[in-house]
Design a protein around this nucleic acid. Sequence first.
DNA 1: ACACTTGTTTAGAATCATTATAAACAGGAT
DNA 2: ATCCTGTTTATAATGATTCTAAACAAGTGT
Lengths: 132, 132
Amino acid sequence: MKYIDKLRNSGLRPTKQRLQICEVLFSTEKTFHFTINDLEQKIKNKINNKISLATIYNTVHAFEKKGYLKQIPINSNQTYFDTNVTDHHHFYDLKNEKLIDLENSDVGPINIKRKINGKKIKSVEVLVKLED
Amino acid sequence: MKYIDKLRNSGLRPTKQRLQICEVLFSTEKTFHFTINDLEQKIKNKINNKISLATIYNTVHAFEKKGYLKQIPINSNQTYFDTNVTDHHHFYDLKNEKLIDLENSDVGPINIKRKINGKKIKSVEVLVKLED
DNA sequence: ACACTTGTTTAGAATCATTATAAACAGGAT
DNA sequence: ATCCTGTTTATAATGATTCTAAACAAGTGT
């Protein structure tokens, strides 16, 4: 079962709650953006039972650390996550405060010419802010 | 006096406190990154007298709206601002939680091929995360 | 110079996302 | 089944940001 692998890989035991979180995050083909609150709501809707915020934060952060989720760099009062962990970027519509995926092919290769001593590049993320 | 213009342009009256904030933000040739707390400290050091946080937030946000300051899109518990409002990008060193400027010429032109109906691009920002 | 209106500053309270706590509970190895 | 250790939970603590409302200052008109 792939959820169990994801959890074990993230250093987490496969508990009932965590499997339910996985179900919400990873069962659909379509990827999506979410905040912790969005996720809490989705879980409440899907199963008929709430999972405490502490558990949700905990699990999401473990997945993020292992690369099963990505944080989207944006200044907002809430942290946004993405279930799409492939290399890609985002539009951010300032008026609606909505994120839109931007495929890598829509941006073209980004070649960072400068090097920082002793550091390697973990990710390159482009945020395109939109206004009316 | 250019500070007065910046303030008036941002819809703010040039008060003593706001001029002092301007002095800290815009008097040096060298640009810098800061959080609201950093700024509060800098002000305390520069003048011998504190300015209330409400005033600092207020002024910084007005400047940001007018483009005299830029928010740096990054997920952190604090919001980062940049006095460098030219087109440029950032490295973010995950270990030290430090930002480093990345000149446009070190990234090369970024051409966003996809268009969103009725929206125009306000900014394109690249964040390069660094690890050891 | 004075008074008046309206914008500003301030300290402190309120809010809200996130993190910490510690007690009850559950996995899973033996 | 037992035991050890990790997990869940409700709730409290934290900390950045925003709100509030009272004291104050700018700028205008007299």
